[in-house]
């Protein structure tokens, strides 16, 4: 194996070690420590959680490197950070900071409306959002080592995350039942690389680990996405915009690990105080939907 292929394998392998875990958005050192103590498998360092980004409007960018460095110093778990879609220089900067994963994220304002980052030349792994199988395979084709369903970040409404997870699962099972001669046509319809379409048909799963994201606000939401086939979850605004972040963070960690056990879920869902305030998606204009960013 050449060096780049070896690094890509190591990057996909790190995601395997995060399976069954929760990755939490944090905006400062104190939140990062709360996340680690609650049992997060990684933290996502960003300036503002998605619901605040929604409220504030304007352009949302990569975080201040000083803040990312302070979080790297403060916790022992992997530290991830977001770059704008297509912003090669923000990615170069985060790689030089030694972050463990870069999220090329629709939650930030896109820097390039045409192209995502070519992720192959980087040592640092990338996670990217997807609404369906074609989008997931396009990102993997560009070098993403992990996928997360986009959901609709900052809404506290799980409906889009469910839609995206179900879509990917259905499209994978369609491919699994397809005859070999159907796969080129399927690749054309999905707008996805042919070799990756063949691989998914053969292995009946995505070629990389897939987490859920976007709108998860309760332990039950997290368990629902696990039941639908996600391998772990990202939680953004849902934790630190709630009444008792430490308790809610711990409960979501336990919910992901115990998603098949309703009695445990009932116990850990009790007494958590108010969840974040949610948004009905019909209250959002099409242009306000983060999931529409990227292609």
């Amino acid at each position: 194996m050449n060096e780049a292929a070896e690094q890509y394998a190591l990057n996909r392998d790190l995601a395997k070690m995060l399976k069954g875990g929760v990755i939490m958005d944090v905006v400062n050192v104190e939140q990062a420590q709360i996340a680690q103590e609650a049992g997060a498998v990684a933290v996502m360092a960003l300036e503002r959680v998605p619901s605040e980004i929604r409220k504030a409007g304007g352009v949302s960018r990569m975080s201040d490197p000083d803040m990312i460095k302070a979080i790297q110093e403060a916790v022992s778990i992997p530290v991830m950070a977001k770059v704008r879609i297509g912003h090669i220089i923000e990615a170069d900067i985060l790689q030089s900071l030694g972050v463990d994963y870069i999220d090329e994220s629709e939650v930030l304002t896109p820097a390039d409306e045409q192209y995502h980052i070519d992720k192959h030349p980087y040592r640092v792994p990338f996670v990217c959002g997807a609404r369906d199988l074609g989008e997931a395979l396009r990102r993997i084709g560009e070098g993403a080592a992990m996928i997360r369903t986009k959901g609709e970040a900052g809404t506290g409404n799980v409906v889009e995350a469910v839609r995206h997870q179900r879509t990917i699962t259905q499209q994978i099972s369609q491919l699994a039942g397809a005859a070999p001669e159907e796969l080129m046509s399927a690749a054309k319809a999905l707008q996805a690389p042919y070799d990756l379409v063949c691989q998914v048909a053969r292995e009946q799963r995505l070629p990389v680990v897939n987490f859920a994201a976007g709108g998860i606000a309760t332990p039950a939401d997290a368990a629902l996405l696990m039941r639908l086939g996600s391998e772990g979850v990202f939680v953004g605004s849902g934790i630190f915009n709630s009444q008792d972040p430490a308790a809610r963070a711990r409960a979501i960690v336990l919910a992901v690990a115990n998603y098949q056990d309703p009695e445990t879920l009932a116990r850990i869902s009790s007494g958590l105080g108010e969840a974040m305030e949610g948004l009905d998606l019909s209250d959002l204009q099409e242009g306000q939907k983060f999931a529409r960013r990227g292609w």
């Binding site: 070690m17 995060l18 399976k19 069954g20 875990g21 680690q36 609650a38 049992g39 997060a40 498998v41 990684a42 022992s76 778990i77 992997p78 711990r250 960690v253 336990l254 690990a257």
Partner: peptide, 15 residues
């Protein structure tokens, strides 16, 4: 197995 040791320890205690 491998995973995050801090998370594993918390989940072991809870279980």
């Amino acid at each position: 197995p491998g995973g995050e040791s801090t998370a594993l320890r918390i989940l072991l205690d809870a279980a």
